[in-house]
Design a protein around this nucleic acid. Structure first.
Lengths: 116, 116
DNA sequence: ATTTAATGTCGTATATTTGCGACATACTTC
DNA sequence: GAAGTATGTCGCAAATATACGACATTAAAT
């Protein structure tokens, strides 16, 4: 998207899609899990843990940072990345609301009009 | 992804990313919500509800169908699309597990090593 | 059989993503 | 201040995604 006819969708649809997109690459999922697993706020040697170049990892980090899902504080020579757990909780709720809406739908039971 | 160095990530990371990608476009979010809101399994005149051409909507439907998030049964002239609520529930659980892992992380309290 | 309606598929143009090397920046240490 | 280290940014190449018109397909209706 973002040359999607994005204006025609609701803010909520766009926001959900935006966050989903941030999670739409295994490297970014891995980065979030890695940050969650570390007590200390490990800097960009996240790259050492992933099968990607430092440049590419940095790019993924920027994408997550752009949505404020993670934050990076400069600490001297290294950068300390942290999860924004508050925002992640909100996102979780947003996703949950979406999935509940989708999974409690009465559509398409076996006795439905269309028979599927 | 899929020219990501995808083999190096875990199956779970890849699966989560794959589903996230399916939700990473407002049109696909809207399609799922639309299907959830209809009692009857409305066919591809979903396109009439969206600001996109029929071709484009059909493409998005195929993407969702490829992941089995929705199903389409041919019913004479029209196609009846339905949500796969069982799979959606599983996906919801998968996402929830991920978010809980991320949000219960003890990383980066104010008293942490890095101070952020 | 012919027409009409509902869908899917193909080809193509454009935008975005992904990945990385090379370079710039900033801070620490000597 | 020079050297070294940790990061970010730029620019490019290749892969994907997005969007749509034109055509093919299938089934209902006449």
């Amino acid at each position: 998207m973002t040359y999607a006819k994005t204006a025609a969708f609701t803010q909520e649809q766009q926001q959900l899609a935006r966050v989903a997109k941030a999670l739409a690459h295994p490297a970014r999922v891995a980065i979030i899990q890695f940050l969650a697993s570390k007590q200390t706020c490990i800097s960009g040697d996240i790259a050492a843990e992933l099968p990607l170049s430092r440049t590419t990892v940095s790019q993924h980090l920027q994408e997550l940072k752009a949505l404020d899902l993670i934050r990076g504080e400069i600490d001297g020579l290294t950068v300390c990345y942290c999860l924004n757990t508050e925002l992640l909780k909100q996102v979780h709720q947003h996703f949950t609301a979406f999935f509940i809406e989708a999974t409690t739908s009465p559509a398409c039971g076996p006795a439905d009009a269309c028979g599927c």
